[in-house]
């Protein structure tokens, strides 16, 4: 039997859209609902039953002195990485943008150097960092020793470890931010600078504050959101270098979620960590849209 044109057209739509839509629902939306529900249970992987425990998991996570580390460390880590990585990315981008006017090939070579850590496999590079930071054999402490200094144990000192990880995080993300800022800089029309010059804002400093910085508004916002979600998501370096230690000094949300869920099989608690992580990411996105509503860029 021949189907009518209308029904053939409907079947075509289903054939084109159906697989992706089903996959999206099964692989994203249903899991999100399940994980939200599980965060209110004490379910353990492999257990036959579970109990509803209300906000218990969240209370433990935010009040228990050791469990609390995952949340606080993530926030501290983000508070270091976000501003530093954005600031350095912007500085490098401004420098390279300026340099590219006269020596474009040289500038693009430098750009590649700054971007290299973004493309490199982070786990592999973390292993290299481990070698660099090795207390006795590492390059850094050997250099310090050559200068007569006793280098610390960068990755096993409770007070230092989070900052060490933050430095690696910055090293890894500066190039990415630089590239986004370079794109933003390239999009600024040059006649704006001419206008600023005529208006008496000719010096580099004035030009930056009257033209560059306001025009980069949308880019900066975008970069901030990406850097923030990236920082909240920190996992590879922690898993490779510290496993959250020593004594939870470098425990972070995603790693804690992995450990609690997949090493200790506490699925309910791990789900609660997941939800907190998700809310942090959503909060950043919501802030972005909130700011966009108010129009950050040129008034």
């Amino acid at each position: 039997m021949r189907l009518s044109r209308k029904s053939r057209s409907v079947l075509t739509d289903i054939w084109l859209v159906g697989p992706a839509t089903c996959a999206m629902i099964v692989l994203i939306f249903i899991p999100v609902i399940i994980v939200a529900l599980m965060s209110f249970t004490d379910y353990q992987f492999g257990a036959r039953s579970f109990n509803w425990v209300g906000w218990q998991n969240y209370i433990v996570m935010l009040t228990d002195p050791t469990a609390r580390h995952a949340v606080t460390n993530t926030l501290v880590y983000a508070a270091i990485v976000i501003p530093a990585s954005i600031f350095l990315g912007l500085i490098v981008a401004l420098g390279l943008h300026h340099l590219a006017l006269k020596t474009p090939r040289f500038a693009s070579g430098l750009r590649a150097a700054y971007f290299l850590p973004v493309a490199a496999t982070l786990v592999a590079m973390a292993v290299v960092w481990q070698m660099l930071l090795h207390p006795s054999l590492g390059l850094l402490n050997q250099l310090l020793a050559a200068m007569g200094q006793q280098g610390p144990a960068w990755l096993s000192d409770r007070g230092l470890v989070l900052y060490t990880l933050a430095v690696i995080g910055i090293w890894q993300s500066v190039g990415y931010n630089m590239v986004l800022f370079l794109a933003g800089l390239a999009a600024i029309p040059s006649d704006l600078y001419d206008a600023a010059e005529l208006d008496g804002a000719g010096s580099g400093w004035n030009r930056f504050w009257t033209v560059t910085w306001p025009m980069l508004g949308p880019t900066t916002l975008f970069v901030t959101v990406i850097t923030a979600t990236g920082a909240f998501r920190v996992f590879e370096t922690v898993a490779t270098l510290t496993k959250g230690g020593p004594a939870f000094a470098s425990d972070v949300l995603v790693y804690a979620m992995y450990r609690e869920g997949f090493v200790y099989f506490k699925a309910g608690y791990s789900s609660a960590l997941t939800i907190v992580f998700f809310l942090l990411v959503l909060l950043v996105t919501a802030l972005k849209f909130g700011i966009l509503e108010k129009k950050v860029h040129y008034k």
Partner: peptide, 23 residues
């Protein structure tokens, strides 16, 4: 509606779905 779902799905980091998918 489907495009709205796609945009919503963009906001979900993969880590969030890990536990149910593992199960």
């Amino acid at each position: 509606v489907i495009f709205g779902l796609v945009l919503a799905g963009l906001l979900v980091p993969f880590h969030v779905t890990a536990i149910p998918l593992f199960l």
